[in-house]
């Protein structure tokens, strides 16, 4: 009796493309799993020559950088795909964007250069937290108290159960934006906007953990769920700025013309 053999013959990867995409508006409620399914279908709809893994159940070659939590919008999500044929990244971007629902938007596609992988180019995220119906002065007091603290213990449910951890150390920047008080959408209610930069650590410190921290240090209780948007991901410079992780690939493409 022949041993079970996985069917072979999947074409090899000849090109890697890195993609920046956004999760906007109502589609910010898409979970990472939901996005992954939609993206795989978009590859098929757009006729992208995606490469598949070997084995009994071949999977498309897609790897994701850390995904924003469900319910959080993002302007800076990243993934990398392996292709079995070379394509023009600009055409790929347009085709994928058209194949995804509006609100899941493909912003940029570049050919991956040699050297560091995507994951090695991401160590921090920048977030915008809109606290509608929150008095900017109260938010400013909470932000000051948070910044002044050395350690802010918060709790979150994880797969291992309820665990407590420090939400302060990972935060490299937390300021109240000057245009706070001007709501992003029509309506007269006050609005406080927080600009936040957080390092990727384990356990992850997410925007809602920082909000728990603001509650812990200053009793800040937003009356409606905050709107959170990830604005950028990348390496942190010594000045605290975030470096676009696709920058190196773009430079490489313009030099090498790959």
């Amino acid at each position: 009796m022949a041993k079970k053999q996985p069917p072979g013959g999947q074409a090899p990867v000849v090109q890697r493309i890195r993609i920046r995409y956004a999760k906007r508006g109502p589609l910010r409620f898409t979970s990472h799993r939901d996005f992954a399914r939609a993206f795989e279908r978009a590859l098929l709809r757009a006729g992208v020559p995606i490469a598949f893994s070997q084995g009994f159940t071949p999977h498309p070659k897609i790897s994701y950088a850390s995904a924003a939590p469900t319910g959080v919008a993002s302007e800076a999500e990243y993934l990398e795909i392996g292709l079995r044929e070379r394509v023009d990244p600009a055409r790929l971007r347009a085709a994928l964007d058209a194949a995804l629902s509006p609100g899941l938007d493909v912003i940029e596609a570049v050919v991956a250069s040699e050297g560091t992988g995507l994951a090695d180019r991401i160590e921090a995220s920048r977030w915008r937290i809109e606290l509608s119906q929150v008095d900017p002065a109260a938010a400013a007091r909470a932000v000051d108290a948070f910044r002044a603290a050395d350690d802010v213990q918060v709790e979150r449910m994880t797969k291992q159960g309820r665990r407590a951890f420090d939400a302060r150390a990972a935060v490299t920047r937390i300021v109240l934006e000057e245009r706070s008080g001007v709501p992003s959408e029509a309506g007269a209610a006050p609005c406080a906007i927080i600009d936040l930069v957080v390092r990727q650590v384990t356990p992850a410190v997410r925007p809602d953990d920082v909000l728990s921290g603001l509650r812990a240090v200053a009793g800040l209780e937003p009356p409606v769920p905050p709107r959170v948007t990830r604005l950028a991901q990348g390496l942190l410079t010594s000045q605290g700025e975030i470096v676009d992780p696709l920058e190196a690939d773009r430079e490489d493409a313009s030099i090498g013309g790959r």
Binding site: P26, L27, F29, D34, R41, T70, G71, P102, V224, P225
Partner: peptide, 19 residues
């Protein structure tokens, strides 16, 4: 509806946006 969605499980099911 939108402010209620962060408080429920699997909010995407109430959003629509299907192909």
């Amino acid at each position: 509806l939108e402010p209620l969605l962060p408080r429920v499980s699997k909010p995407i099911q109430y959003v629509g946006g299907e192909l």
